[in-house]
């Protein structure tokens, strides 16, 4: 028994040494990343100081052109959205930003049925490489599991499965979002013909709201407002999907009204949702669509800003 315990101890020590050494290397890769998702997240959490911040999932990442915002409003803008993420990620990014400064304007992209589904908590595990250096995001990641705080002591666990996207920007630049695009991921091209349709689907969800998602959304929205940011909640368009009467949108209307937060719904904008030239796939706008949509949005935001001054 003593022999086996000794051998297991030796293996454990060796493993921990390798783990910490690998962690140093991976931290370096993360911190020096020339572009891509880790550069973007690091900037969002640590160095962003832009006047306007856009937060959302992949729709947020592709649909909002920060250059249009900068030119129109004469401000600086940063798109902090991240594909495949949900409210826990938005919350973590909010904590990282508000920990350092208060943006003047925040555009929060909410999807038409986002508050009816799960919270996408597991997906926020994407932020694990930043766990150790960012106490402000730890409470959110700790919700993934009770043992998260112990797991993340292992550097290899924090970087689990991240290596491809962590190392690729060193070999091929610009594939995962270019630094000069300010967090925006513009896509050129047009929606594939297999997705083309003549009819518009009117979404009539009846699913109940997810209490956890609603609570997290309310926390994010109210915190931005309390801190002094001008918050705009936006529902962006999808191709041939008309969303105007979902439980999420109905809830957003009530919430926006009672908290005096502007709500800009574009998922019912038939000039956009019926135009395939604006889309790269059914859920995301292409460069042209994104630029058009952002201009239209700024056209709505500008008078609201002026009115409040």
């Amino acid at each position: 028994m003593v022999t086996i315990i000794k051998k297991l101890a030796v293996i454990a020590v060796c493993f921990l040494i390798i783990d910490q050494a690998a962690g140093l290397f991976l931290d370096l890769c993360r911190d020096q990343s020339p572009d891509g998702r880790y550069y973007k997240t690091k900037h969002s959490l640590e160095t962003s100081d832009e006047d306007v911040v856009i937060i959302g999932s992949s729709r947020g990442e592709m649909n909002y052109n920060p250059f249009v915002i900068e030119d129109s409003l004469k401000v600086t803008a940063w798109n902090a959205s991240r594909g495949g993420q949900g409210l826990p990620y938005f919350h973590a990014i909010q904590n990282g930003i508000l920990n350092r400064y208060v943006p003047k304007i925040v555009i929060l992209n909410i999807e038409g049925s986002m508050l009816e589904h799960r919270r996408f908590l597991a997906e926020a595990g994407f932020l694990r490489p930043f766990y150790q250096g960012h106490p402000e995001i730890q409470p959110i990641l700790n919700e993934i599991s009770y043992f998260e705080k112990f797991y993340n002591r292992l550097r290899l666990f924090s970087y689990n499965s991240s290596y491809y996207y962590l190392l690729r920007p060193y070999l091929i630049k610009g594939l995962d979002g270019r630094r000069e695009d300010k967090g925006w991921k513009p896509r050129d091209g047009r929606i594939h013909e297999i997705f083309l349709r003549d009819t518009t689907e009117i979404v009539k969800d009846t699913e109940p709201l997810n209490e956890g998602a609603v609570a997290e959304f309310e926390h994010i929205a109210k915190t931005f407002k309390e801190k002094g940011s001008r918050l705009f909640i936006v529902v962006s368009p999808n191709y041939q999907i008309y969303e105007d009467n979902t439980p999420t949108i109905n809830y957003l209307r009530n919430f926006a009204k009672s908290n005096q937060i502007p709500l800009l719904i574009h998922s019912n904008d038939t000039t956009m949702i019926r135009n395939p030239d604006f889309f790269i796939d059914p859920d995301h706008l292409n460069r042209q669509g994104s630029t058009y949509f952002t201009k239209k949005l700024i056209g709505e935001i500008r008078p609201l800003l002026t009115a409040s001054l």
């Binding site: 293996i11 060796c14 390798i18 783990d19 797991y151 292992l154 290899l156 666990f157 689990n160 499965s161």
Partner: peptide
């Protein structure tokens, strides 16, 4: 044997899927 064990541990922690 020792190197293989450590490699497998590193691989499992670094590239395993831990979604229960």
């Amino acid at each position: 044997r020792f190197a293989t064990i450590v490699f497998l541990l590193v691989y499992i922690v670094g590239l395993g899927v831990f979604d229960g």
